[in-house]
Simulated assay, not measured.
Amino acid sequence: MRTEYEEYRDTGMLGGYRPERAVLRDDGNGSVATSFRDTAYWLKDDHAVSERQMLIGGKVFQVTSVFPTEVSATPTDKLLSLIDADLAKEAHSA
């Protein structure tokens, strides 16, 4: 396994995404949440926020992700719906 210095040296990124270092937590609702040590997490009224800094190409980027706490569909469901809509649009224009 590479050290954090080697990861930074090879990728130019601090806090590279390393799934094997994730901490899995049961959220009590039958779902599992992943936590990474270089990411800050907090819950607001109707959404969860994760925030981290990434160094890419010598520039620091603040990456913020916002997730609703009550979901109507999974990201995969939404992606499949988008693909289906694009395919239907192509079929009508052909």
Rank of each mutant, 00 (worst) to 15 (best):
M1V: 06
M1I: 08
R2C: 09
Y5W: 11
Y5M: 04
E7T: 10
E7S: 12
R9K: 10
D10P: 03
T11D: 09
L14Y: 08
Y17P: 03
V23G: 01
L24F: 06
L24R: 10
D27Q: 04
D27W: 02
N29H: 11
R37A: 11
T39Q: 04
Y41I: 01
W42T: 02
K44R: 04
K44E: 08
K44Q: 09
D45T: 08
D46R: 05
A48P: 01
A48V: 03
A48Y: 01
A48Q: 08
V49A: 05
E51W: 09
Q53K: 04
Q53T: 04
Q53I: 08
M54L: 10
I56Q: 04
G58S: 13
K59G: 03
V60R: 02
V60L: 03
V60C: 01
V60E: 06
F61G: 05
V63Y: 05
V66Y: 04
F67P: 02
P68L: 13
P68T: 11
T69S: 10
E70Q: 06
E70M: 08
K78T: 11
K78V: 14
L79H: 15
S81F: 15
S81Q: 12
S81D: 14
L82Y: 14
A85T: 11
K89P: 01
E90C: 12
E90S: 09
E90Q: 09
H92M: 14
H92P: 01
S93R: 12
S93H: 09
A94G: 13
A94R: 11
